[in-house]
């Protein structure tokens, strides 16, 4: 037998079915099914969408807090401080608020995923629930969604210079992640920007005052911009108790006393917030916004994780 005549060898067929590396270059819009995006989080979107009461309460308090009324709100912090969860939740709540008429929040609400550091657990993973909540997610699309590349989208600069709506920045971890801002810092309307440092006192390097101050100045140096406030995000994942939240808030207040930066938010998972039966924390305990924080960045074995949605 002449092997050369056997045109339909297994090899040929198998090669023909190789994926075309260019096939995923097409635009994939958030909100559309992302095909093989298996690392996404759908979970709490519906909870959050139903929670208009908390949204209203948040917004009322927000009015009291001038720095949070700025158009551009950026979240920075050291690795694992919870920047992304805070940014995603805050954007989502604003998105929901913007959907309620006459409450003063003007759309469009946009969130930019500026995380060039870590390819895991980024805000782009919450793209679907954010979109459902009316938030425009600015992130790399197509196969670059999963890329371990420092991608800064060309539209970012334009979005910073716009004057409408609100812009939430989810900046990557540590001074390394904050570097992204240094390349954009000429474009920021400083009078209309508040950058916040997210503080988790249970994380290495920010577990004491000296550490938190050091990280703060490293972040400011790297970004070439100054902070306008602090976010108390102390927690221990599932082991967090209401007292842990209070302890973290006290710690952030100490950072505040040393730096002069106001504590603008304290976060807590909804299960830790007083609902009349659970003896959780109460809004009036804090001189700042209490942001109910739904966890979107969950490991895949969690039943409440995305993929269960």
């Amino acid at each position: 037998m002449n092997l050369n005549e056997d045109k339909n060898s297994v090899d040929d067929e198998s090669r023909d079915s190789r994926p075309d590396p260019r096939s995923n270059q097409k635009e994939v819009h958030p909100g559309q099914p992302l095909g093989v995006a298996k690392y996404h989080i759908y979970t709490h979107a519906r909870h959050a969408l139903g929670g208009h009461e908390s949204v209203k309460a948040i917004y009322q308090k927000l009015e009291l807090l001038g720095p949070l009324q700025k158009r551009i709100l950026g979240f920075l912090g050291n690795f694992g401080s919870g920047k992304t969860e805070v940014a995603v939740n805050f954007a989502m709540q604003l998105g929901l608020a913007a959907n309620i008429e006459n409450n003063g929040v003007e759309g469009p609400i946009r969130i930019i995923d500026l995380d060039i550091i870590n390819p895991y657990f980024r805000s782009r993973e919450a793209a679907e629930p954010l979109t459902e909540a009316g938030v425009e997610v600015v992130m790399p699309t197509g196969d670059k969604f999963w890329a371990d590349l420092p991608i800064i989208l060309p539209e970012v600069k334009g979005l910073i210079k716009r004057t409408d709506g609100k812009l939430i920045l989810d900046v990557g971890g540590d001074d390394l992640g904050a570097r992204v801002l240094s390349h954009l810092n000429q474009d920021f309307p400083l009078e209309n920007t508040t950058l916040m440092m997210v503080v988790n006192a249970n994380r290495p390097f920010t577990s004491d005052l000296a550490g938190a101050r050091k990280v703060l100045s490293e972040l400011e140096d790297a970004a070439g911009l100054k902070f306008g406030g602090l976010v108390s995000n102390t927690h221990l994942m599932d082991e967090t108790s209401p007292d842990e939240i209070r302890r973290g808030y006290e710690f952030t207040k100490k950072v505040s006393a040393e730096t002069g930066l106001p504590v603008l938010m304290v976060t807590a998972e909804p299960r830790l917030i007083d609902n009349g039966t659970n003896s959780g924390i109460r809004t009036e305990e804090f001189d700042c916004l209490l942001l109910p924080l739904y966890r979107f960045m969950l490991p895949p074995w969690r039943r409440d994780s995305i993929r269960s949605g």
Binding site: F79, G80, N200, N202, R203, P204, H235, L236, E239
Partner: peptide
């Protein structure tokens, strides 16, 4: 107890 990433915990 502190909160750590797997990779950081490996280092520590």
């Amino acid at each position: 107890r502190i909160l750590m990433k797997g990779n950081e915990a490996i280092g520590e």
